[in-house]
C-alpha cells in the first residue's frame, strides 16, 4: 500500500505524463494508471476529476467535450505547452528525489 499523501502528491505528474501521449478521457486515464501500477496504487476513481479540473484551471491541460461512437458525452483532455513545461519540471524533481533515495538505499560496498 502506498500512503494517501504520496498518492496525492504523485497524481499530478502521473496525469501529466499520461496526457503527454495524446488526447484521452478521464476513465482511460485512471484505467491506464491502474494498469501501469499493476494495482499497487489505489484511487477512489472519482477523485481524479477534481484534480483534472484543478490542472485545467491552472492552465496545464485543456478539455473538450466530444460525442463518442456509442452516443456518450466524453470529456477529452490534452496537454498544453505550459503543461509540457510543468511536466519537465516535475520529472526533474521526482528524478532528483529518486536519485537521492537510490544512492541512500544502494547496497554498501563490501571488502571481502
Amino acid at each position: 500500500m502506498v500512503s494517501k499523501a504520496l498518492i496525492a502528491a504523485s497524481t499530478k505528474p502521473m496525469i501529466l505524463s499520461i496526457l503527454a501521449g495524446g488526447e484521452i478521457y478521464g476513465y482511460q486515464i485512471i484505467h491506464s494508471m491502474i494498469e501501469i501500477s499493476g494495482g499497487i496504487l489505489e484511487w477512489s476513481e472519482g477523485t481524479i476529476y477534481p484534480v483534472l479540473h484543478r490542472l485545467e484551471k491552472d492552465g496545464f491541460i485543456r478539455s473538450q467535450w466530444k460525442m463518442s461512437n456509442n452516443g456518450r458525452h466524453r470529456k477529452y483532455y490534452r496537454l498544453t505547452a505550459f503543461g509540457r513545461k510543468e511536466l519537465e519540471k516535475e520529472k526533474k524533481q521526482w528524478m532528483s528525489v529518486h536519485n537521492v533515495l537510490s544512492k541512500l538505499w544502494a547496497p554498501l560496498p563490501s571488502f571481502d
Partner: peptide, 10 residues
C-alpha cells in the same frame, strides 16, 4: 468525498 475533493481543488 467527491464533493469535498472538488471543493478542495477550487
Amino acid at each position: 468525498t467527491l464533493g469535498t475533493e472538488y471543493f478542495k481543488a477550487t
